[in-house]
Design a protein around this nucleic acid. Structure first.
Length: 264
DNA sequence: ATCGGTACCTGCACGC
DNA sequence: TGCGTGCAGGTACCGA
């Protein structure tokens, strides 16, 4: 679910947590702690103030007063909610000096971890797609022989794109998902760079895409799903030429494209 | 060093 | 009503 625009929307919706204090913490699921001890982790964050909330690709870093970070990834079905009753898939409850923050994740692909240092996993990510200069992007493309769709999903290439926005960007750039990255000519790389920026910017403005269960911290859905041109539109007519949208597997992920507008 | 494939979970839509 | 199948915004890990 949550790709860069959704995570950005969540981060903006919890920005008001800065300055509040974590009074107590409860962790109910070892899996989303990646094996850490629930009690020990709660003890380390209880009583600490929240100094900042930032997004790095699809990661959320909550920096704590006195040092250290809560490192949160929403996986496929993760949610951060301000208030509301805890449910079957509530794995973490942070009680604040004002309000409560819940972490829910039905598939448990996401995680919450505590790190004293800036986390290695985040440091290793590629550049932000909305910030990377075109020359850097083009040079990185040239070095990769993999298929462009797989590369766009690779977080060490760019951080934050997922299946929806990779497909939507490739459509807007007129590039076939199986095109080899290193063989893209400069003008096509330029179109792709511009398409990524445009798609992500529009999606953030729309509050992200709510396919099934994505909501922000107030439970509000996004509405960029109404602007998808190819993602999960298999068989429907291309908005540009009317050709039925096709689906194929690339790197084990569904890829949606127009066979006429996106030539190999 | 890079790849493609598989595993990890739960829930839902669908056909029978 | 229930059961089997396939699919879903994600990453980590394996062997080639």
């Amino acid at each position: 679910m949550p790709e860069l625009p959704e995570v950005e929307t969540v981060v903006r919706s919890i920005a008001l947590l800065v300055g509040r204090r974590i009074v107590s913490a409860e962790f109910r699921c070892r899996r989303v702690l990646r094996g850490a001890d629930p009690g020990g982790m709660a003890a380390r964050i209880q009583g600490r103030g929240i100094a900042g909330v930032r997004r790095y690709g699809k990661f959320i870093l909550v920096s704590l007063e006195g040092g250290g970070y809560l490192v949160i990834h929403l996986g496929m079905t993760g949610r951060l909610l301000l208030g509301g009753p805890a449910g079957k898939h509530t794995h973490a409850i942070l009680t604040l000096d004002r309000g409560v923050l819940l972490y829910e994740d039905s598939r448990q692909f996401g995680c919450i971890q505590f790190s004293e240092e800036f986390p290695e996993r985040v440091a290793k990510l590629g550049p932000e797609p909305l910030e990377v200069p075109f020359e850097d992007f083009a040079a990185a493309l040239k070095r990769r022989k993999t298929r462009i769709k797989a590369l766009l999903l690779n977080q060490s290439f760019l951080r934050g794109l997922g299946n929806i926005y990779a497909d939507e960007s490739l459509f807007r750039a007129g590039i076939h998902p199986l095109a080899v990255a290193a063989r893209l000519r400069r003008d096509r790389a330029r179109r792709l760079h511009e398409a990524i920026v445009a798609v992500l910017t529009e999606a953030i403005a729309a509050g992200g895409s709510s396919i099934s269960d994505y909501v922000d911290a107030y439970g509000r859905k996004g509405f960029f799903q109404f602007s998808h041109r190819v993602y999960q539109r298999t068989g429907e007519p291309c908005v540009t030429c009317g050709t039925p949208i096709r689906r194929l597997l690339v790197a084990q992920r569904s890829s949606h494209f127009c066979p006429k507008c996106q030539k190999r």
